[in-house]
Each structure stands twice: as structure tokens, then as C-alpha cells.
Simulated scan of single mutants.
Amino acid sequence: MDTTGVLDEALERLHATGPEFDDWLSNHGPMAAEALVRHGAGRDVHRWLDRYGKRLEDAPRPGERIADDSWREALGDARRLGDWLAHFDRLLVSAPERPWRAVLAEWWPRLLPGIAGGATHPVIRVGHAVRVLRDGDAGAPRLRELAHGLGYWAARYQPLPGDLALVSSPHAPAEALRAVPPVADQSGGVGHRLAQLTELPDWAGDGAGTGGGVETVPARLADLVDSATRYYATHAHGNAVMLVHAATAPNAVLRVLPELPSKLWPASLAAAWAASGAVTAAYRPSGPAGAADPGGATAEELFARAAAHGDEHAIKLADTALDVAARHPGDVLPRSAALRATELITPL
């Protein structure tokens, strides 16, 4: 993927910073840098980091060690973010006893119920990290990036409301997203909104009429990513920043899926659907708008436009739109989604 060393340099710069800043905002630097390098904008990464990095804060220091027999007590405790980062650094970088895929397979099902934590940013960061490691170079900066993603997820672990009902639905994912009822009070932040969730259409379950064997999970998950990206093209005005994650969170799961044992695939699909549906419910507008017209611009050209725009969410959405466009070359909506992000989101 990257033979210039730019990505490793960027990751080393970013690992001196924490996963969050201003108390709870997510550090998108590693995710955006990986996407920029992957899609041919590596020469711009350090200049982008010079601008973006001004807002970031130093990495939190560890305090108390996360014990192997009491990690559950520390799960979801944001005060122990530094401890969780150190824990996964030991497992993956400084004192590894197993390959990174074995660590991932152990912790993925532990963390998956808390996929909504950090507004889904931790799982998205893990998805970018795994995509890099799949390229074959498992050097320290890339392993540490996976450690930061998993540590961030563990610290911000947040299950969706315990009484959330998954209502049997005959819809395919595109219709299911449009059928998701909005939360009643959309005046607060993401935590306030997600706490109001009471039900979601159960598209991911076998009761939806779209079930099948475990071998169908990758295609069904890709269908969800495609549908959420198309939904963004016509509904981004609900919240152009936050609705990005309805597409990028399930895409992160899709990127991790090939590295997981297949027995973990059905739960991964269900969690991806819950995350996408929850974000959709939290920021659903009153109705659709017309999709932006990208004209003859290719998905690659629209990614370049997002890179020049500079906002990290626009870059991530364009990165996912490229995946969708590759699966559906004749579909204009993935390109419309990438364009709409640059139109509605404030540039960096």
C-alpha cells in the first residue's frame, strides 16, 4: 500500500496524541491519514496533519495496570483510557505473546456489544488499522494503531439501551434505514439521543426474511454499507457530520470481517446494523432531499475533492463511497454522497 513511509511517519506523530480532545471529541487523524495515503494523497498528509494536529492533546498517561482477571470492571471507564492504551500496547507491541489476529479475535466479541461507544469512532479506527495490517507490514506503528483503536473502544465501551427492541421487519437494508423511527428529542448530543432509542427494525436478524448461513454475512454487510452510503446522499442534511458514521461504522466492521473467525460474523453483522440504525435514528431529518449531481466526476476525483476540502469526516465518507462505487460502478449515489459531504461540512 505505502512504500514511502509516509503512513508510518504520520502514525508515529499521531500516537503522541490521545484518541480524544476537548473532553470527548474523537481524534480522526489516523483514520484520515490512512485514507489519504491509500488513495494517492500521501504527499499531502503531513501538511494536513500540521493543520489538523493543532487541536489535538497529548496522549493520556497510564495509571493502574488492566489485570487479565478484572478487565470487565474497567470496561467503559473513560477515566482509564491511558490504562487501556497501555494494555493493548503490551498485547500487540511491547510484549506480544500472540499474533495480532489472535488478539483481535479474543477482544472483538468482548467489545462488540459496546460498538456505539465514542459515537462509533473506536470501531471505525479499528477498521482502518486492520485494513493497513492486512497489507502485510505489521511494523510497530501499525500495530500500535490497532492498540490505540482497541484501547479507545474499551474505554468508551457503551452498549445501546438495554430495553432496545429489535422489531421483526421484512425490509431490505435500504428500506429498513428509511423505516427507522427518529428519536423524539433531537436537541442534545449523541449520548442523549442514543439513550432515547426504544426499537429498531430487525433487518439483520433471520426474522427479517433476509437471513441465511454464515457465508451470506459479508454480502449482507456490504449491502448495509451500500444502503447507508446511498441514504447519506439524500439525508445528510439531518446532520452531515454525524450521519457519516451510519455508513463508515458498518464499513469498518466489513473491513475487519475477513480477519475474524466466521463464528463471529453473525454477531458482527447484527452489531453493525444496530450501530448504523441507531445513528440514523438519532439524526434522521424529516424527509429526503435531492441528491447532489456529481456530473462526470469519478469517485476518485471526488475523493481528491474531499482531500482538498480537508475535513476528516468528508475524507472518511469519500473513502467509504469509493468502496461502494467499486461494487456498483454505474450507481451515481455513492458519488453523490461524497459530493454532498463536501457541500454540507465546513472545510478544515
Rank of each mutant, 00 (worst) to 15 (best):
I315E: 06
F303R: 00
A318F: 04
R327M: 05
D311M: 02
G296Y: 06
H313L: 05
H313A: 11
D319I: 08
L302M: 03
E312H: 11
H309Q: 10
A321M: 01
H309V: 13
A308D: 15
G310I: 15
A321H: 01
A308V: 14
G296N: 13
R327Q: 05
D319Q: 03
L322V: 11
L302R: 00
A297M: 11
D311H: 12
T298G: 15
R327H: 10
A321V: 08
A318G: 10
T320M: 02
A307W: 04
A326D: 13
T298S: 15
D319P: 07
D311G: 14
H309I: 14
A321L: 08
D323G: 04
T298W: 09
D323P: 06
A304E: 12
A314T: 15
A314I: 06
L302D: 04
L317Q: 05
A304P: 00
R305S: 12
A325C: 01
I315Q: 07
D323I: 07
V324S: 09
A325Q: 12
G310W: 08
I315V: 15
T298L: 06
A307H: 07
H309Y: 03
K316H: 11
D319S: 12
D319Y: 01
D323T: 14
R305H: 13
H309R: 02
E300V: 11
L302K: 04
E300Q: 10
K316P: 10
F303N: 14
A326F: 06
T320H: 03
A306G: 01
A299Y: 03
T320I: 07
L322T: 11
V324T: 07
A325F: 02
R327L: 06
T320F: 01
I315P: 03
E300G: 10
A306T: 10
A299V: 13
A297H: 14
A314W: 02
A308I: 10
R305E: 15
A308Y: 04
H309W: 10
F303P: 00
R327N: 08
R327E: 13
T298N: 09
F303I: 05
E312S: 11
H313R: 01
F303W: 03
D319H: 14
D311S: 08
D323F: 09
E300F: 01
F303L: 11
E312M: 07
H313C: 13
A318T: 13
L317P: 04
H309E: 14
D319M: 01
A321Y: 08
A306W: 03
L302G: 00
A297F: 09
F303V: 09
A299H: 04
A318C: 13
A307F: 08
E301Y: 00
D311K: 02
I315S: 08
A297D: 12
A326G: 10
I315W: 01
A297Q: 13
L302Q: 06
R305I: 12
E312G: 03
L302C: 07
L302I: 05
A297P: 07
T320L: 06
L322W: 00
A318L: 05
L322F: 01
A304D: 10
A306H: 10
A307I: 12
L322A: 06
R305C: 12
R327A: 14
L322C: 00
A321W: 03
A314R: 00
A326I: 12
A297R: 15
R305P: 00
L322I: 09
E312Q: 11
A308E: 15
L302S: 02
T320D: 05
H309M: 12
A308Q: 15
D311W: 00
T298V: 05
A321E: 01
A314F: 02
E301P: 09
H313F: 07
R305Y: 01
A299K: 00
